[in-house]
Amino acid sequence: MVCRSIEYGGLGVRDLERTGLALRLRWFWLSRTDTDRAWQDLDLQFTPEERGLFYVSTSMVVGDGLTTLFWEDRWLHGQSIRELAPLLYLCIPKNRRKARTVAEGIGGNAWARDIRGVVGLQEIGQYLLTWQLVTHTTLSTEPDKLVWNWTANDVYSARSCYRATFHRSMTCRSWKLIWKVWAPPKVKFFHWLANQDRCWTAERLARRGLHHHPRCLLCDQEPETIRHLLLTCPCARQAWHETLSWLRLPAPSPEHDASLQDWWRYWCPG
């Protein structure tokens, strides 16, 4: 959580493991786009995790088909044959998957001769789908282009790769209310802790099996939770009443199930 960016509810502390992953993918990118590198002939080893992230982050724009891998790269409408025809893909020997280019595969329909093993009805259906897609592919004299999907200029950057590792994370709805306001840093940090329910209230002490007071020390009415301390405690409600009266705003009582985040968003919808 701490290593997530502030937009995703974290503190933006850099995750060194993800950073290392992003930097290693730079070698993968250069091995496909810069053939003049002195280490191009070295047998670079990449983990399945690195290969998986690379292939979902890239796609190929086919030109002459000389560098695009027929079975591995995402060159058919942004998808690979492994995605479009997974059962057919399993019928291809591994050495062919890593070597067969689009130009070689289309020439004389050589890709069809790569199929080995038992072919059932499902494999035949995927074979016909692949045949239809490949038939409508035409090559040109332009070189193939590898596209990085996370940048506007289609070129790899470590920053975009690092951010891609958080793709589909849930966006924090109130991050601007915490960090984009005028307040001392310690106040912002307390607000962040309160949103995460990480303040050492009696409720949290009880969950950890630590000594705690059974009731709020301010009102002696309810158990001490972060929501009670900041919203429903009579002392907190009085403080809100005085503050909102000074701002000439109405001071409604918090809903029974309203969270601290919902309370802030009600008063600061922007």
Rank of each mutant, 00 (worst) to 15 (best):
V2A: 04
S5V: 14
G10H: 04
V13E: 00
V13F: 13
V13K: 07
D15I: 11
L16Y: 03
T19G: 15
G20D: 14
L21K: 12
L21C: 12
R24D: 08
R24A: 11
F28C: 07
F28S: 01
T33V: 08
D34P: 01
D34S: 13
D34I: 09
D36S: 12
A38N: 10
W39G: 08
W39L: 11
Q40D: 05
D43G: 05
L44H: 13
F46V: 05
T47Y: 06
P48R: 08
L53N: 07
V56K: 14
S59D: 08
M60H: 09
V61W: 04
V62A: 00
G65I: 14
L66D: 12
T67E: 05
T68H: 08
L69W: 10
R74E: 01
R74M: 03
W75G: 10
H77K: 09
R82M: 14
L84A: 06
L87R: 15
L88R: 00
Y89E: 01
I92F: 03
P93D: 00
K94L: 09
A99C: 10
G105P: 03
N109C: 13
R113S: 14
D114W: 12
G117N: 02
G117V: 07
G117T: 06
G117D: 00
G120E: 00
I124L: 12
I124C: 09
Q126D: 05
L128K: 14
L129R: 14
W131M: 06
W131L: 13
W131D: 09
W131Q: 11
Q132L: 11
H136G: 13
L139D: 07
T141Y: 06
D144N: 07
K145A: 02
V147T: 04
W150G: 02
N153L: 04
V155Y: 09
Y156H: 01
Y156R: 01
C161M: 15
Y162H: 00
A164S: 15
T165W: 11
H167A: 15
M170A: 14
C172I: 05
K176Y: 02
K180G: 01
P185T: 03
F189W: 05
F189V: 13
H191G: 03
H191V: 08
R198L: 10
W200E: 08
W200T: 10
L205Q: 05
G209N: 10
G209Q: 06
H211Q: 08
H211L: 10
H211Y: 00
H213A: 07
P214Q: 03
P214E: 10
R215S: 08
L217H: 01
E222N: 05
P223H: 11
T225P: 03
H228N: 01
L229A: 12
L230R: 05
L231E: 07
C233G: 03
C235P: 04
A239D: 07
L244D: 06
L244W: 07
L247V: 02
R248H: 09
P250K: 02
A251F: 04
P252C: 02
S253E: 15
E255F: 05
L260I: 14
L260F: 08
D262R: 11
D262A: 15
D262Y: 03
Y266I: 09
P269Q: 10
G270T: 04
